[in-house]
Design a protein around this nucleic acid. Structure first.
Lengths: 148, 148
DNA sequence: ATGACTGCAAAGCCTTTGCACGCAA
DNA sequence: TTGCGTGCAAAGGCTTTGCAGTCAT
């Protein structure tokens, strides 16, 4: 039931923001609500567009500030999709997560998950003298559509 | 014998550049030679510094141009280490490659390789309707030194 | 009332582009 | 000689910062 997960993230994020001492400003709340609706990573630019379409436009600076705060609290994860632009994706409270295949032609993001991949990474993390907090896996190539 | 591999990459790159119709300019050659000496990924900024120290300073634009050409020919791989800066790493002709753990505190890059990780990724690639050309795995956290 | 939040504009940072000169072929 | 390669400076694109007005608490 993905809808429930999304709602969960939104309220979870707002609670965590409040617990961290943030007030409930309109711009940040709008950013949280927009992010709660996304299925995959979104860039600051796309988010700005989305918020403008929704009516309550939010200043670019406020968007970046909110994204940074959310990322710092561990509520968002950064992901470089196109060269030079960062996209942001929800971090689910439960820890479930996916990785991405990115089409070099059209930029499409295709999410995937795989248990044996996670196990392999956990094993590596376990034997390294490095405190692994998170991991990214990105596949690059061409999507089904662009291959033809 | 890492030294041999490095030398190999340098001549391999120069040959491939020539085969692609590029002339043998001084700036690009200096970039290739500097990259041949690196043990891990390096940013354009670090490369500029390195080349300046070596005496034959190379213009920033020429560095970026060379890096782009090398990456387009598949001789370099791009890697985002710090937020907002791209680093470049040799792609070995033999296909052997490693991944990276990146310390969030000091930025240190720790390379690692793992067969079961590669196998897991190959299996995923095999069953996706996506033409996977390459993959990145990045572990983020704190290095041994910064944990203490 | 106080200080956080926001919007706007300006500044920053990395990277790319335009252009004229120099060098490889 | 031709036109690719290079350096310099300017422009670009994304992101961050400064500041003054506004709003949550």
């Amino acid at each position: 039931m993905p809808a429930a997960t999304k709602t969960d993230w939104g309220s979870f994020a707002l609670e965590k923001l409040q617990a961290a001492g943030f007030r409930r400003g309109g711009a940040r709340t709008a950013v949280v609500e927009a992010l709660a609706d996304q299925d995959c990573a979104i860039s600051a630019f796309e988010l700005e567009d989305l918020l403008r379409e929704r009516g309550g436009g939010v200043a670019r600076a406020s968007i970046y500030r909110a994204l940074e705060q959310l990322a710092d609290l561990g509520l968002l994860k950064r992901l470089e999709v196109c060269r030079g632009t960062t996209s942001y994706e929800r971090v689910e409270p439960g820890g479930e997560h996916h990785h991405h295949a990115i089409c070099a032609d059209c930029g499409k993001l295709i999410p995937f998950e795989d248990n044996s991949l996670e196990r392999a990474i956990d094993k590596i993390a376990g034997r390294m003298s490095f405190d692994v907090a998170e991991h990214d896996v990105v596949l690059r190539g061409r999507c089904e559509h662009c291959t033809r």
